[in-house]
Design a protein around this nucleic acid. Structure first.
Length: 266
DNA sequence: ATGGTGGCGGTGCCA
């Protein structure tokens, strides 16, 4: 079940239906063992499970009409699937499909996270984001105490530092860069999680997202907002990590590109 | 610049 040196990737695909050919191409070329998808933008029934299963991956989907939606693909087995953060707000519904968790390879627990964007930051969307991050922290605090290694991957919609932004001054007041967002991201690290790209590539300009507008890709006007957070048991096995920029340059690309980690065996 | 990107769904909303 546990592949030799398994690779776990995260990718915000911005619609799985629009991106299916690109995703299948990438699965064939990169051969990741586990893929955490965000913004699938479809209900469960609309997810192209058959095409992805034909490529060798089991699928667990937590979908929603038009917006959000997350999924986990695995060719190492897929068990114990949980949809949604368990600690829902008392007063209401969190109908937004932003979290799915499962055990892959028998022993590795992974989550696919699509954290709220939070803009405009003077609207209720910003406190919603911050509250969601606090709920994530509470859940992540329990996960880090398990015997299993844990990887929390996804589109966090947070640039952890100014080095993760092509124009820090221009983005300072954006919900992705505000100090409140960064403080809550650091609170996840303080639980013991390691930001794999920050550890492995500690330099500015390692971006994972480029806006569709204004020629951002061509100018490398990017942001680092897609992260793989590794619990201590997972970080102990970190062999390598990277950003695969190739899919962003392909025709009909998502505005995000895959981020991956490779783990050593025990 | 009269717009500017793209996906969903069939109109504006969201990012």
């Amino acid at each position: 079940m546990w592949a030799r040196m398994p690779t776990i990737a995260t990718w915000n695909v911005n619609s799985i239906k629009a991106r299916l050919p690109a995703v299948l191409d990438w699965l064939r070329g990169a051969r990741p063992d586990v893929v955490l998808l965000q913004e699938i933008k479809t209900v469960d029934d609309g997810f192209p499970a058959e095409a992805i299963e034909d490529a060798g991956y089991a699928c667990a989907v937590h979908g929603q009409k038009s917006y959000n939606g997350v999924a986990i693909l695995s060719r190492l087995g897929l068990e114990d699937v949980t949809r949604g953060l368990p600690n829902r707000p008392e007063d209401g519904e969190d109908e937004q499909a932003r979290y799915i968790e499962a055990v892959v390879g028998g022993t590795l627990r992974v989550a696919s996270i699509y954290l709220p964007n939070g803009n405009p930051s003077d609207s209720p969307k910003f406190p919603y984001k911050l509250t969601w991050m606090e709920r994530l922290r509470a859940h992540a605090a329990g996960l880090v105490r398990l015997d299993e290694p844990v990887i929390l991957g996804g589109d966090y919609n947070v640039c952890p530092t100014d080095g993760d932004v092509y124009d820090p001054a221009g983005w300072r007041d954006d919900a992705l860069c505000r100090s409140e967002s960064r403080e809550r991201f650091r609170a996840l690290l303080h639980l013991g999680y390691a930001d794999a790209i920050a550890v492995r590539h500690p330099r500015p300009g390692v971006y994972t997202y480029w806006d569709y507008q204004g020629g951002a890709w061509q100018k490398d006007n990017g942001l680092r907002i897609d992260h793989l957070l590794l619990s201590p048991l997972a970080a102990d096995r970190l062999d390598d990590a990277g950003v695969d920029r190739a899919p962003r340059g392909a025709p009909k690309a998502s505005d995000h590109t895959p981020v991956w980690v490779r783990l050593r065996d025990d």
